[in-house]
Design a protein around this nucleic acid. Structure first.
Lengths: 238, 238
DNA sequence: CGACCACTTGATCATGCTCAACTAGCGTGG
DNA sequence: CCACGCTAGTTGAGCATGATCAAGTGGTCG
């Protein structure tokens, strides 16, 4: 994805914060008005194309960010090229691992996205100063831990069909537009494979299988409709 | 494991704390002398036999604990019986998920163990009061998250041989007795299988395979020697 | 129109699962 | 003290799920 690029849009200000997706999210929701405006003065809005790397595995953590639009995948790669997606983050999640110098994973935009970038030192100072921010980040870490463990069960013990159904269920839960359950896949087949510990061929076969069984409709390559959520849920044993 | 039982030993006191494995661990290391003695007055030492469940999946969290001796496995089971170990905790780790009412996983002693049990309300109050305790638990959560993600890579992308080698490596790292690298497996073959997302037969075959290749020696069913740690590490691509 | 890319589909292969027999260790009771 | 049963682990034979390799499809962009 060498066409992928990122672009600095505007210097964040408290004015920009008012209409921000992440205004009441994990980080910004925990700050006082004064802190929010200080953080805003030192933040940058970045527009990030799908496929663009935000943090490289093994690189130094020199900033943190909020996702303000789009989906970000957290990824681990092995020296021989095998890779595994170990987390998906949706707006308005926080991305980064405070107080650790080197990142053990990469973060990459799965869809076109926008992030709000904070300087490392400022955010770390605020975490130390702000009880509520500390608590809030702790809570997000625990939620991510639960999600990671749920996914370990999927990776270790579910069949290919159950894995694919689990992913669709997960994405539907985040897309949830009231009644209808139609959504865009934020991931390509290759990325789905990397998330589920499968190959792209198996993912493709399981998707067509779910389609033939009438559990999903594949409107087009990236758009799925689930006529009956319960039928999908039934594909996920346990 | 219906022989497994747990037994309350003594009411913890600050006297007992002085020689405790977990005295400078995640929880107790973050407390003031006064808090430590208050927590001690309300804590119970419990001796827990291998196989005994400490927290049941789906149960209410009514207490937290420190592991003061032994190894605890965190486990998820599906309604059809398939199960996956999603974490191993060693003394002096903290066990429990603060501020969440229902446990999404079970905790079970893998070896004979001892834990120090804290009442829920007291510990939660101390977390709210104590900046350093909050920070310390946050740090443990982030470490567990890293470990979980590392394990996701193993579950999703490594071969059976690599998986078994990874587990031996993990256990060796925790047993590390200076020079020699000999250790007791805290897990049965069935538990290893549940940790690695394999069957016990595959685990057994891979262990004999590693033995035949000279990478490990199986002194007896639970005791392993690794003559050359590097040779073991080479089995883990990545 | 053609090249390219992401995806699908098919045929064959192999890793790891299933089912089954066998072994070793260990505690219990005759 | 040995026979017995029980548990945990090992080993083998055959099978199936999902991987690999390869060809084909469809949409997009120049």
């Amino acid at each position: 994805m060498d066409v992928a690029r990122s672009e600095v849009l505007v210097i964040g200000t408290s004015v920009a914060c008012r209409s921000c997706q992440a205004r009441h999210g994990v980080v910004c929701g925990a700050l006082s008005a004064g802190q929010l405006s200080e953080l805003g003065r030192h933040s940058l809005r970045r527009k990030v194309d799908a496929g663009c790397e935000i943090i490289a595995q093994g690189s130094e953590n020199s900033f943190y960010s909020n996702i303000t639009r789009g989906v970000v995948k957290l990824c681990k790669v092995m020296s021989d090229g095998r890779q595994q997606i170990v987390g998906l983050q949706f707006a308005p999640d926080f991305v980064g691992r405070p107080f650790v110098r080197e990142s053990t994973l990469s973060a990459e935009a799965a869809t076109d996205a926008e992030i709000c970038v904070f300087p490392r030192n400022l955010l770390e100072r605020m975490i130390l100063e702000t009880r509520e921010l500390q608590r809030s980040l702790h809570a997000q870490a625990l939620n991510e831990l639960d999600a990671a463990r749920e996914w370990m069960l999927t990776l270790g013990r579910r069949t290919a069909e159950e894995k694919v159904a689990s992913l669709l269920h997960l994405i539907a839960a985040h897309a949830e537009t009231a009644t209808s359950t139609a959504f865009d896949l934020p991931l390509s087949r290759a990325e789905i494979a990397d998330f589920l510990g499968l190959t792209i061929e198996t993912v493709s076969r399981q998707l067509t299988r779910l389609r033939k069984e009438g559990v999903i409709r594949i409107e087009n390559i990236r758009h799925i409709t689930v006529p009956d959520m319960d039928a999908l849920a039934k594909k996920i044993s346990g």
